[in-house]
């Protein structure tokens, strides 16, 4: 049982992290990048829960997961707020054109 949970959980986490980083690396749309960040965060949360479960401290895992969700939501909200402002003042959400600051 534990062994199976460990495997399934691990694979899921790795898939989530992989998808998230893949999204960060290739997507050009800012909203999609924020979504990718969220996917990454879900992977991390799952990792916390799984770690707690493996150690038999499910309650701690849950409370940590909740905290991360809250923190992560705030980050997402700020990111979306910025995205709105960027759309309004830069006229684009394409990260390729958001590269005026360089060199």
């Amino acid at each position: 049982m534990t062994l199976e949970l460990w495997n399934v959980g691990l694979v899921t986490i790795l898939v989530l992290l992989g998808v998230g980083f893949y999204g960060l690396l290739i997507s050009r749309n800012l909203i999609k990048m924020v979504v990718a960040l969220q996917i990454l965060a879900k992977g991390a949360i799952l990792a916390m829960v799984l770690a707690a479960k493996l150690q038999g401290w499910t309650v701690i895992g849950q409370s940590m997961a909740l905290t991360v969700i809250v923190a992560d939501t705030i980050v997402a909200v700020i990111a979306m707020a910025m995205a709105v402002q960027i759309r309004r003042h830069c006229g684009t959400l394409d990260v390729q054109s958001l590269s005026n600051l360089r060199r």
Binding site: A44, V68, H89
Partner: peptide
């Protein structure tokens, strides 16, 4: 616009970093 661009870059990279930290903690 420049301030916003800097802000969103900071946010995305910082958030990516903090997720790596979370995975490490797990």
């Amino acid at each position: 616009p420049a301030g916003l661009e800097a802000g969103i870059k900071y946010l995305v990279q910082s958030a990516a970093g903090s997720i790596l930290v979370l995975v490490a903690i797990a």
